[in-house]
Design a protein around this nucleic acid. Structure first.
Lengths: 210, 210, 210, 210
DNA sequence: AATGAATGAGTATTCATTCAT
DNA sequence: GATGAATGAATACTCATTCAT
């Protein structure tokens, strides 16, 4: 029922409360095992209010995915030095991803979650695709400048995303014990090595300026 | 109801039918969105029969995960030349993973699926952990022989698993269009590059013997 | 919340807006399928305001029924020539009913609607009963004057009401395509024939003065 | 979920039980005020079973409407003497309607009920239309033979149906106290008078052979 | 082994109504 | 008067699981 309802200041706040509760619960127990009643209970409001702010359970999930993706992207953009070379930018982006996931672990979990239905799965997939395409563009510039191995940039991008995603996943689930900062550095290095061309200057690989 | 029931030849066949139907459906729509009735309908038997062969819905999932993991492991073992150097073995293992996933796409999908409950999630996690530990051991030998960069082998293993897993995921979902064979070669090369030490012999990186 | 609140001029207007919206919606989709929110949305006001003017949803329905019934009755009264013979009066009343329904189709529909609860059903029933009793009295006079067949006047009244009601119903739902005026004439004639005694003067049957 | 499920003898019986319970309750309190749980409770079975036999609540209603209409039609067919003149057939049909409704009051109530949704309303309307068309055909023959007034047969049919329906309605709701048999005779006579042409033989009007 | 019937706990969603501002 | 937020009781429907035959 929400759609483009005009919300008061209080309304905006309340909606955010619900989004937060939902995000936490979805991350903790997954979408299917989170009941609407759990979400409203966590936010301390009545069940009906949920449907004042959201069309249905799927809609909250979708909204979370969208906004998380947006924040993630902004975080990356902020972390990337537009004047730097592609390889450095790649490292910066990946490091930013690791830090973002550390700060918003519960939201980030959603991006990999099994979505509710077809529609939302689509949403997740699209987001990933955008991310991959961005990364591929970066790699392509790297190839042109001789910094990245001359391979299909899209494939390389998938590899990069895969390792970053999994590092984060294992960190979130406690199987990587290093600090987020340490992990970020490691991941930046790992990713750069994965795609760097033969004979690239050592300084780029080590990432001294990171 | 099942546990360790003694099955006739026909029984074994029936059970396999049900497992196959379940695997396909779980992969297509996920565990939660697959109903027992869908599974039996796909196998062309009555609902009650499901419980003759399986304790419950979770049990099928668990059984599928376990057997898939086993097959996967066997496939890798067969593909690895015990006499080869660690880097080559790593490449062989990864290539085998890609081929296995291509041949058993619907089963492989399960290994990354959102499990039913805590217990099964645990099962999935354990399997991944075993795989990671195996890989880390291989990498450790590589480090000792100077073929792999001197970094935390477990971290490297996570990176390797992440990229392989994601390559397979994107291939399975149609976003990588190369043939399984081409992809296997690419992934093997990608992974080796990701972990290889500086100055390793070119032949190992290119993987001529693959 | 309403009861006998003193309303300002604007208030009266607002209330009428709501009544109109409600009448239209009730006629279109029935009482149960019309939500309070639909009514206020159609009137362009906020939900809370509904309860400033009406006790509850049932109350609007009751108010509509009562006022419609009143209007209907007035319309009949105006149409009937007090000096005419019972048979002519009957015709005039029935013709007036048809015209009324044509002019206020959406209101008239309510009089036959499935009411909300016991109370309002009671209200509807009572209204019908009053109408039937009035008609029966007219018929009784007709019988006394030898213009109407000597049968139970109440039964005859039910027959009359039934046919008039159904003619209107079929006209309202588009299954009678004649104009309201044509239909009125037909119905007047039909009803008179239904109850007229044997050998009544032709002029009364034809209704030249209609 | 039902559709064309193959039912065992027991299944057929159970389904009928549920239909009976539903019919009674719908007639007593209306569709909206009858909960699925009431229906199953009345039949003494568990809630889930309802959905084994019916798609949903609307479906039972639709099924009841259809079968009632069918029975009604058969009852009429049986009551009509194919060799009789149209006017007599009309009387026989109307009398049969009255008797049918007296015997199946709770089912018959459904035919006039406010249906659940658009679809079922459509069903009800269609049924009525068929009935009206049948009656109109009969009247047309009557007109051709000079037994019925020369007016639009469809309009006459609506008038006939309206009075019959309302007689039944008032009888069912206790406002007509005569016995069903008495009422049937009265209605037959009333209807014939409503449509008979001027100067038709008295014997046809009185209906001695009824 | 196999079937179809039966069970019932569990959950999303609706909507009339009330309330604070 | 007017608004939008909040409440919570009520209910249809799903689906894993069990049972009688």
């Amino acid at each position: 029922m929400s759609s483009d309802r005009r919300l008061t200041a209080q309304g905006v706040e309340r909606k955010q409360q619900l989004l937060d509760s939902a995000a936490t619960l979805f991350a903790e127990r997954g979408f299917a095992d989170t009941r609407v009643i759990d979400i409203v209970a966590a936010a301390g409001v009545a069940k009906g209010l949920f449907y004042w702010y959201f069309e249905n359970k799927d809609a909250v999930f979708a909204e979370l995915v969208t906004s998380t993706r947006q924040s993630h992207r902004l975080a990356q953009r902020d972390a990337i030095d537009p004047a730097a070379d592609p390889l450095t930018q790649l490292r910066q982006g990946c490091e930013a991803s690791v830090r973002f996931m550390a700060d918003h672990a519960h939201l980030y979990a959603l991006l990999q979650a099994e979505g509710p239905d077809q529609r939302v799965s689509e949403l997740l997939r699209e987001g990933t695709q955008v991310h991959a395409t961005d990364t591929a563009a970066l790699l392509e510039r790297g190839i042109a400048e001789g910094l990245v191995r001359d391979e299909d940039p899209m494939l390389l991008a998938y590899g990069v995303l895969g390792s970053v995603t999994w590092f984060c996943h294992f960190h979130r689930t406690g199987r990587i014990t290093q600090s987020a900062e340490e992990l970020a550095t490691f991941v930046g290095r790992y990713v750069v090595r994965s795609v760097a061309a033969e004979g690239v200057d050592e300084s780029l690989l080590v990432g001294t300026a990171a």
